[in-house]
Design a protein around this nucleic acid. Structure first.
Lengths: 237, 237
DNA sequence: CGTCCTCTTGACCTTAGTCAATCACAGTGG
DNA sequence: CCACTGTGATTGACTAAGGTCAAGAGGACG
């Protein structure tokens, strides 16, 4: 499988961290606990599933996905992280997922052994894990119970801030309820996140386009014409 | 939908905690932090999705599932808890799942506000959340990428201690690799956990029976004839 | 013995997957 | 500047896996 080979090549040739600190200031919850800030290129691997877990990471800027592979090459992207998310914590001594950047990213890295030492760190961790758990629960519903259209609609809605949630206030302006999205994911990555094939994702996107719900400026850049009508297709209404 | 109505009836009529302490001694990680121990009947609801989150719970004995419902009645069981698991922590002020017992259970309950106060509690929490996260990641792979047979095989394998994992040593005795399981879940609950329909679960179980991999003594009492051959069907080999 | 409930089985249908051809676009090199 | 190549995305035709609907079997219980 193409992406698998690419990743393996990355490991040795491309994806190694540059080790320099970010040039622009970026807030990090973990920076108070020492460690270093590292920049990663797009599609660089931070760590591999099965590697020994040695560090705790915080995504400071950019976007990172965590995925698991089955031996025959099937892939499931289990989380798509946003700035502020903490990752790398493992219940065994090995990482249970591979962490790969979707865009160039800045990551704050500290030693895992710090975790036992700091009370404040534990508190931050609890909050972060709880919120990731919540996302994972929602995602389980998506993977287990939603149709292809509902999955894609849910995926797009998650990229719209303050909309589609329980406390969604609806559109501010009924007549002007559009939104511009930059996905930062290929069709393959979206498919592996939503438990679909690349062809199905493509077909659903084309269909939404045909029905006037979205406009596709670039494969990667999508305009939602009416957020509310897309939200109606997520299965949560 | 039948189970939905049943749950709603339970809420008022059956499922309320009896409030008595367990008669037999049971170790609990949370018992040091005060609170009370509560016994629940089979299919009792500990809390509902959307209810205000006020308490932190530890399953001391028995079995509990966490599930989410879509407005049209589709259900996804997102976790099946075992003794020692901690639940009830929410990222908002509302529970994101319904918690319902699968068997009669004993639950240790403490006030959520305790969490901020105790360092030791935070530490316990971090460990528990991390391990639940690991399970959720695996489950995402199951829901997103596995076939019906692989899902059922994985489900059954998870009920066999020390087998099927990464460090699985294989059968101790090649000729005598059987195992007896008590599921404690209806076909509907299994289906909702695995993202399948009740009919598909039933068909897969019948098929495994026909192929001699399992023996079905009762609907929820299954004997695995050869653990290793079932493990071969989980998709992880 | 009848009722209720869950589970099983069969027939049929729908959804999404598979396979393959084509398109679009960016980068490369003559 | 433009043909060539490679990659990712789209589309179409077909297939297969699992869902739907309906009927019947098997237990538990009053």
């Amino acid at each position: 499988m193409a992406y698998l080979e690419a990743s393996v090549i990355d490991h040795g040739a491309v994806a190694r961290p540059t080790g320099r600190t970010p040039c622009s200031p970026a807030k990090s919850n973990l920076s108070d606990f020492g460690g270093k800030s590292t920049a990663y290129e797009t599609h660089a691997v931070v760590y591999y599933e099965g590697d020994p877990a040695k560090r705790l990471y915080e995504l400071v800027r950019g976007s990172i996905m965590l995925y698991k592979l089955l031996p025959d090459g099937r892939r499931q992207v289990v989380e798509v992280l946003r700035p502020g998310d903490i990752f790398g914590l493992a219940s065994t001594d090995e990482n249970d997922c591979t962490a790969e950047t979707l865009t160039s990213s800045i990551v704050q890295e500290i030693d895992l052994r710090q975790v036992e030492r700091s009370q404040e760190l534990q508190s931050i961790l609890t909050k972060s894990l709880t919120s990731q758990m919540h996302v994972l629960h929602e995602h389980a519903v998506l993977l287990g119970r939603k149709s292809a259209v509902e999955r894609v609609a849910s995926f797009l809605m998650h990229l719209v801030p303050d909309r589609g949630g329980l406390g969604c206030a609806g559109p501010e302006d009924e007549e002007n309820d559009g939104f511009d999205l930059q996905l930062h994911m290929t069709r393959q990555e979206i498919a592996d996140y939503l438990g679909l094939t690349i062809e199905t994702v493509s077909r659903v996107v084309s269909d939404l386009k045909r029905r006037g719900v979205i406009r596709v400026d670039k494969a990667d850049k999508i305009h939602l014409n009416k957020v509310c009508s897309l939200c109606q297709m997520t299965g949560i209404h």
